[in-house]
């Protein structure tokens, strides 16, 4: 597939927003349970707004994906069948929820944790929706796996914790350690999960073949002409146009930038108590995760491509 940057930004930004919320909420829960010194309400309030901002930017990015953004309001109509419609519902709910959770630290909306429970539900639902948008297309074999959900969840959460670490390092240092340690753990787990999915995808055998595409048996079935030469929607939307080598560069870039470097920065930053290193971590990680998401989208090999192999 050809990754659309609108989608890349949409999913990475809302993932980070969701993760940040989870970080804030878990810190508050842990604080309430007395396991850590809780972050202050100002921090939670501002942090929530930051999470809402990230998700809002994601929402904004999504508009660039639409051919007819002015009709975006229609896009929730088919929530009964469409994960995309569900996402369209879940995302504003999440944004509203996280905003309410933040405000609850300022205004008497009720116990913040209770208000946040709603955001938590929206957040988890949103993870499922976003993941399922990809995982539900059964013939996009690279995507059609529970690993897709796991990755969206783990990567989003990890990046949110990394962001939380940076925010805390700057504004609420006493929780930076909590966030940072979890950020490292989540990044490791996310990397593991992502690695498993990479390994899985590398071993995938496409179920569709030129033979099944046209229904003709024979050892050698090869397209000679796709029927036109100047390209079409089908040659643009479903091919990333990057060489194998290029793909591999992107893959290593995201492994390094999205996972390894942030882990190192987090570890070093926590050890050295360096705000700079801890702030650098999410910045680097975000760049890496943009690459990751690009790769995720690109790597999916659409069976329609069997029909668009060659011109003559």
């Amino acid at each position: 597939m050809r990754p659309a940057f609108s989608v890349v930004f949409l999913t990475t930004l809302i993932g980070a927003g969701q993760g940040l919320f989870l970080a804030l909420y878990s810190a508050e829960v842990m604080g309430a349970l007395g396991r850590i010194a809780p972050p202050g309400p100002r921090f939670l309030h501002a942090g929530s707004w930051f999470a809402a901002l990230l998700a809002g930017l994601g929402l904004l990015a999504s508009f660039f994906h639409l051919g007819r953004p002015e009709r975006a309001w229609r896009s929730a109509a088919r929530w009964r069948t469409s994960w995309l419609a569900r996402e369209v519902i879940a995302l504003p709910l999440f944004i509203a929820g996280v905003a309410a959770y933040g405000l609850a630290h300022r205004l008497p909306l009720g116990p913040p944790l209770a208000v946040g429970a709603f955001a938590l539900a929206a957040c988890l639902a949103l993870f499922v929706c976003t993941g399922m948008i990809y995982a539900c297309i059964r013939f996009l074999q690279e995507w059609a796996s529970p690993l897709t959900l796991a990755n969206f969840f783990l990567i989003g959460t990890a990046s949110g914790f990394t962001v939380a670490t940076a925010l805390a390092a700057a504004f609420e240092p006493h929780v930076a350690g909590f966030f940072g340690r979890w950020a490292i753990v989540l990044t490791v787990v996310a990397l593991a999960s992502r690695a498993i999915s990479l390994a899985r995808n590398a071993r995938l055998r496409p179920r569709s073949t030129p033979q099944s595409a046209i229904g003709v048996e024979g050892a050698r079935v090869e397209q000679k002409s796709m029927g036109f030469l100047g390209g079409s929607f089908n040659t643009r939307e479903f091919f990333h146009g990057v060489s194998r080598g290029g793909l591999s560069v992107v893959k290593w870039a995201f492994i390094v930038l999205g996972f390894l470097v942030p882990m190192a920065l987090l570890a070093a930053g926590l050890a050295a108590g360096s705000v700079a290193l801890l702030v650098a971590a999410p910045v680097v990680q975000y760049a890496g995760l943009v690459a990751e998401r690009w790769f995720f989208l690109a790597q999916s090999n659409h069976p329609q491509n069997l029909y668009y192999q060659r011109t003559a």
Partner: peptide, 24 residues
């Protein structure tokens, strides 16, 4: 013209390989 925008020389792969001519 979208169906035949430009053209290729069709060569049997054996002949092409012998001449070092690559597909495309």
């Amino acid at each position: 013209r979208q169906i035949h925008t430009h053209n290729y020389l069709f060569v049997n792969p054996r002949t092409a390989r012998a001449a070092g001519v690559e597909d495309g």
